[in-house]
Nucleic acid binder design. Structure first.
Length: 441
RNA sequence: GUGCCUAUGGUGUAAUGGUUAACACAGGAGUUUGUGGAACUCCUGAUACGGGUUCGAUUCCCGUUAGGCACCCCA
């Protein structure tokens, strides 16, 4: 029996309140204010790229019919089978938190006849996705993706356009180094025949396979290609690769994609073992890897069959999604750290004395209405304390408003770098501040 | 979902089966009445949660929770 513990007044107090501290749901992290800069930069880069490439925002709900993903992504895929947040609503509908964005875009495409408005449709989306997995670095249960989709055209130029848009975001963010892994998964016809070839190859060598591979040989033979076990790796060397089994049209498409990739100076490496975990992909598949990053930062490919799966109508389409958390983590880990766009200069407002403090809200509001970001620490009594905060925040210009100034109808402008001060009339404040900040930016 | 590892103030670390759990940074107050960055003083603040072993647990054991790593999978 722990007597000290139970008589500890502090602990008893905590217990008495009966409030167990609540935590965020596992794998669903808070994104805190200190992260704002990174996310802002990412979104700004995305918006710029979207505009330059003529992609337009589409926002679909976080909740969709569970069936959308079962049909689209594939009921047998891990994403749907094991990782999907699916549940029934009070009304009995089976819905799911979206595990990815593409299927919903296609759903909207059919539902709103978006094909009539543009051919092809070029859309982008951004938002949280949900997968029930064991959290790990770079893998959360709620995470954010930025995606580009081009729906309605099967031309290989669009495969590459999607890659270019994706990479443009990375370039805009000044990513240190990245490379694109590319492969083709063929079409229904040639993929199926390759699958058989692959199965036959491995079945003949089944005894040498690791336990996992033996198990997934029938269900998902493509996966054997990226097994890390030594024996399996050795077998891979002799294994048939899909490129040798592509049908003529798939082969021509792939060749064309590679040529365009080359011509556009995209850093790439063909990877015959690249396979994607979603059923709807065909032909081009690719992943963007930050050099030295532990995971792919973005992934995508062509999905000409998705329309058929969810709406019974084949519409060629291609897309990619960027993992935002992963990309931001990679940016942070880059050495030297990537400098992001700097904030526009702000002004720090200090007030001394109750009357001045009361009057200062109005003054700050004037500045803000004129488009000047204003920072303050009015909760602190002393001017010293307030200026200390200004210094810490590296605000270039401080305003000092005390009793004296209030009665004079003036205010002091202090340059926080040089320490130079000048007194201006309140009537001229907005103008003077704007002018000064302009000089400083 | 499986296996392994981890858990001390806001952050980064220290220590111990036994007085009051230490240090740095951050935060707060102050060092002449209205002027930041330095220095100094003081203050706030922690053994994740729940059990067990023990005279005594922050330390040892178990469970839970969270995080990390690998698998699985993927952005």
């Amino acid at each position: 029996m722990s007597t000290t513990k139970k008589t500890d007044p502090k602990k008893q107090e905590k217990k008495a309140e009966g409030s167990q501290a609540l935590q965020a749901v596992k794998g669903m992290p808070d994104i805190l204010p200190k992260e704002e800069g990174w996310w802002k930069s990412f979104r700004a880069a995305g918006a710029t790229v979207a505009e330059l490439h003529d992609f337009h925002r589409i926002e679909t709900p976080i909740l969709e019919p569970a069936e959308l993903f079962e049909r689209g992504v594939g009921a047998a895929t891990d994403i749907v089978e094991k990782q999907m947040y699916a549940f029934r609503t009070k009304g009995g509908e089976r819905v799911a938190l979206r595990p990815e964005g593409t299927a919903a875009v296609m759903r909207a495409y059919f539902e709103h006849h978006l094909g009539y408005f543009a051919s092809p449709l070029k859309a982008f989306y951004e938002g949280p996705m949900f997968r029930y997995e064991r959290p790990q670095a770079g893998r959360d249960r709620q995470f954010h993706q930025w995606g580009f989709e081009i729906v309605g055209d099967g031309d290989s130029v669009y495969d590459v356009e999607v890659m270019l848009a994706t990479l443009a975001i990375f370039r805009e963010l000044k990513f240190p180094a990245f490379t694109v892994k590319i492969n083709s998964m063929g079409c229904k016809v040639c993929r199926a025949s390759y699958r058989e070839k692959l199965k036959n190859y491995y079945r003949a060598r089944e005894k040498k396979l690791c336990k996992d591979c033996a198990r997934r040989l029938d269900k998902n033979p493509f996966r054997l290609l990226d097994c890390e076990e030594e024996d399996c790796k050795a077998l891979r060397g002799e294994a048939p690769i899909i490129l040798d089994y592509l049908c003529q049209t798939c082969n021509a498409h792939f060749k064309s994609v590679l040529e365009l990739v080359e011509e556009n100076g995209i850093p790439y490496e063909p990877d015959p073992f690249l396979v994607r975990g979603l059923d709807y992909y065909n032909r081009t598949v690719f992943e963007v890897w930050g050099v030295g990053a532990p995971h792919a930062l973005a992934g995508g490919g062509r999905y000409d069959y998705l329309g058929e799966l969810i709406a019974g109508r084949a519409v060629p389409a291609v897309g990619a999604a960027i993992g935002m958390e992963r990309s931001i983590a990679f940016l942070k880990s880059a050495t030297p750290p990537v400098a992001l766009s700097k904030e526009r200069p702000r002004v720090f407002f200090t007030a001394v004395g109750d009357q001045a403090k009361r009057a200062s809200l109005k003054r700050m509001e004037e500045l803000r209405r004129a488009g000047v970001p204003v920072v303050e620490a009015l909760g602190k009594r002393s001017l010293k304390g307030q200026l200390k905060v200004a210094g810490k925040l590296k605000v270039p210009l401080a305003l000092i408003f005390g009793q004296k100034e209030m009665f004079e109808g003036s205010i002091i402008m202090r340059d926080m770098v040089t320490g130079a001060q000048e007194t201006v009339l309140l009537d001229r404040l907005v103008e003077a501040v704007k002018q000064d900040l302009k000089k400083k930016s």
